[in-house]
């Protein structure tokens, strides 16, 4: 007999695993790990906003994440500071503001640890609905954007010359990232979310000969990690988010020899 909360946790985990895998490939290919981090760090500010406006906290996180993505898109053209410096500044400013706001507004009611490290076992039915709507929406958009995104990842100007609307595709991808990160925060938390994006994709790179194989492989690694991580969490009464990330890391470590043996690596 499976407990309800465990079933919800499992379904949420699988949904997020499949959602983050293809996005994670582009995070790796386009070196967007820092961007993912920044969006995640803004999550707490979104939680505070949700409390302040008494709206669904996931909606609050989505609003703030999307606003950050929009801000970054607007600042893409500037060359005075490197992109990662800018992202780092925004990330930590948002995290600091979020920590302060959430503590002051939420007080003792707010489970700060839950947001920082995730609490997949506390996933509600409403959260599940969000995740599966996200899976349909983001998944569909990714299918539609897959070819132009891939063309841009290989060579931006070549893609532009062939008629890909580079800025629009980039902006759409950043919004999808923001949305996905917002949905995943509840599960693995703000501090571990980027792991979900990059580790499965990195592990899958060792065995992939095509971009699609890498995306599917990443989903496989992710699903496996969620199942094993949840099992570990139950067995040892350990926090679920870190358990999942640790399993992922172990799978990546196991793939490293193949990664190093690749021709042309």
């Amino acid at each position: 007999m499976i407990d309800d909360f465990l079933l919800r946790a499992g379904l949420a985990g699988l949904g997020i695993a499949i959602l983050t895998a293809p996005l994670g490939c582009f995070v790796v290919w386009q070196r967007l790990a820092m961007f993912g981090n920044s969006v995640a760090h803004c999550g707490l500010l979104g939680v505070a906003l949700g409390i302040l406006l008494s709206i669904d906290l996931t909606v609050g996180v989505i609003i703030v994440s999307v606003a950050l993505a929009a801000l970054l898109i607007a600042m893409q053209g500037q060359k005075a500071l490197p992109q990662d410096t800018l992202l780092g500044i925004l990330a930590h400013a948002a995290l600091a503001a979020g920590l302060l706001a959430a503590t002051m507004l939420g007080g003792a009611r707010l489970d700060l640890m839950g947001y920082l490290f995730g609490d997949i076992l506390a996933v509600s039915t409403a959260d599940l609905v969000w995740i599966f709507l996200g899976l349909i929406g983001v998944g569909g958009a990714m299918l539609w954007l897959w070819r132009p995104l891939l063309a841009i990842s290989v060579h931006e100007e070549m893609a532009a010359a062939e008629g890909v609307r580079v800025m629009a595709v980039r902006a759409a991808f950043m919004l999808l990232m923001a949305f996905t990160v917002a949905l995943s925060i509840k599960m693995v938390g703000i501090l571990l979310i980027v792991a979900l994006l990059i580790i499965p994709a990195a592990a899958a790179r060792a065995f992939a000969a095509t971009p699609e194989q890498m995306a599917i492989g990443a989903a496989g690694v992710s699903v496996l990690s969620v199942i094993a991580g949840l099992g570990m969490s139950l067995q040892f009464d350990a926090p679920a988010g870190p358990s999942i990330v640790l399993v992922m890391s172990a799978l990546f470590a196991a793939a490293v020899p193949w990664l190093l043996l690749r021709k042309g690596a």
Binding site: A151, V154, H155, A159, A161, E162, V164, A209, P211
Partner: peptide
Amino acid sequence: VPQRFPVDPTIPLDVGRFLTLG
């Protein structure tokens, strides 16, 4: 055909697939 550019080895891509990206 842009000026010679480094191909990112992080993207698994064979020649046939590279040709049909666009």
